[in-house]
Design a protein around this nucleic acid. Structure first.
Length: 432
RNA sequence: GCGGUAUUGGUGAAGUGGUUAACACACCGGUUUGUGGUACCGGCAUGCGUGGGUUCGAUCCCCACAUACCGCCCCA
């Protein structure tokens, strides 16, 4: 084969695309109810935009960015996540202005790019559906955002969710906790796994969710961030939990949960589910949190924000499990043309029928009548119009109801003039 | 970035160091004139991911590369 798709990319063929379309349509409906509007931002931005917001030591920046220099010598990158671009647009378009509602809510859907080793549910070009809400630091908005995520997943037919939440606190909390962790692990440096020894330097929080059995006993006794929250941060987290309780959203607090992106603070959350599609392992399908301070970092005013991102490929694996066979759209009319001249007439009739709002297909391979009927049958056509020499001579179409096998003659002028009525009569009769 | 497994037609696949690469499904055609199913008959990979090498000869052995999947890292 001469060309192959780039590693970690996928062709989404019509049958699958239809399922994607359904999921996207259902998502938009949920967003509409929550008063989120769509925003479309560039697929690539300045490299610095992603590098600064994600954090210089994050894996996304250090090894996963698809970056390139354009012909003007600008260092650009394909977006690895959605929030940075949206925040940039929020600032650049001054959407924090007094004329805009607060919170200002937007959603996006589209491809993201990360240079990673592909696995199932994990690609180099993948898709996310995400939301961002700017301008309120209310914990109620955190809770609403989590509720939105749950509603979204339920709406597309995914259930059996587990919701984990945690708080990263405010900057003061983070500094204090960071010190506490380093103080705790430093004396045990040699007992840590090689990976975690590196993590202690780069990002001590990461040690907490290490899967290495060597780290587990140490992590079990590590200090919890929940003990280092400032009073304000603790109050915020408590308010989020209270709101979730009132919404009857079951959650677990996982104080070892961390984030791959540096800009998060206060509430973070993940919605997970286990499924045969993931080898019965629990996999995160939606994740997000609060990012107060990011807008300011991008040169805007001190506007808080909260949002989430949802992995569409992972979601589709779950959706396809529930409804594996999308029903093909039925064909209203198939036109069997038995000569070149009849083909031209078929084209004319097909157009008239399409204008009347019906689906039509016809033969383009000069096949014999039998072959054309076979195709019509396979496409589940309700009516077949046969055009041969006789029909052309009489200016009448032979119309067969496939369900009953009954065939009648109808003048071309009736087909082109009032197909809706003709169709209603024939198909209704066919059903009786 | 590291480790492992895999790669035969449109699909599922069998197969062997040696002249015609099973079988099934799908598809196409035929079984007398322009009609759907079934049945029967016929067609359908000059090729076994790509490029090298070993060999008298490789789809089968060796090497490299590519891609997919699994684990690690990390993540949606």
């Amino acid at each position: 084969m001469k060309y192959q798709k780039p590693k970690g990319t996928a062709d989404i063929l019509p049958a699958a695309a239809e399922q994607w379309d359904t999921v996207e349509a259902k998502s938009r409906e949920v967003f509409r109810r929550y008063r989120y509007g769509e925003i479309r931002v560039p697929l690539f931005e300045s490299y610095d935009l992603y590098a600064r917001s994600s954090g210089d030591t994050s894996d996304i920046v250090t090894k996963e960015m698809y970056d390139f220099d354009d012909k003007g010598g600008r260092h650009m990158a394909l977006r690895p996540e959605g929030t940075a671009g949206v925040v940039r647009a929020y600032v650049e378009n001054k959407l924090y202005g007094p004329e805009y509602p607060k919170p200002y809510r937007v959603y996006y859907m589209g491809p993201m790019f990360r240079y990673e080793r592909p696995q199932s549910g994990r690609q180099r070009e993948f898709h996310q559906i995400g939301v961002e809400a700017f301008g309120s630091e209310s914990p109620l908005l955190d809770a609403e955002t989590i509720q939105l995520g749950v509603d979204l997943l339920h709406n597309v037919g995914v259930h059996g969710l587990r919701i984990a939440i945690n708080t990263l606190g405010d900057p003061e909390t983070r500094t204090a906790y960071h010190h506490a962790l380093v103080d705790y692990f430093k004396p045990h440096l040699s007992e840590l796994s090689a990976d975690s020894q590196v993590r202690l330097e780069k990002n001590p929080l990461r040690i907490l969710d290490s899967k290495d059995p060597q780290d587990k006993p140490l992590v079990a006794d590590a200090p919890s961030i929940l003990d280092y929250l400032t009073p304000a941060a603790a109050a915020h987290f408590q308010a989020v939990k209270d709101a979730l309780d009132q919404l009857h959203i079951a959650y677990t607090v996982d104080h070892t949960m961390v984030r791959g992106l540096d800009y998060y603070n206060h509430t973070i959350f993940e919605i997970m589910t286990s499924s045969p599609a993931f080898g019965n392992k629990e996999l995160t399908v939606l994740a997000g949190g609060r990012y107060d301070g990011l807008v300011e970092q991008f040169g805007g005013p001190a506007v808080p924000g909260v949002g989430f991102g949802l992995g569409v490929e992972r979601l589709m694996l779950l959706v396809q499990e529930n409804e594996p066979a999308p029903t093909p759209a039925p064909l209203n009319v198939y036109i069997a043309a038995l000569s070149e001249k009849a083909g031209i007439q078929a084209l004319v009739l097909a157009h008239a029928i399409r204008e009347a709002g019906y689906t039509v297909d016809m033969d383009f391979l000069n096949r014999k009548a039998k072959g054309q009927f076979k195709t019509a049958n396979r496409e589940n056509a309700q009516l077949v119009i046969t055009l041969g020499d006789d029909e052309l001579a009489n200016q009448q179409a032979s119309i067969k109801q496939m369900a009953t096998g009954k065939q009648i003659q109808v003048p071309f002028t009736t087909v082109t003039g009032d197909f809706q009525r003709l169709y209603a009569d024939l198909v209704e009769e066919g059903n009786n």
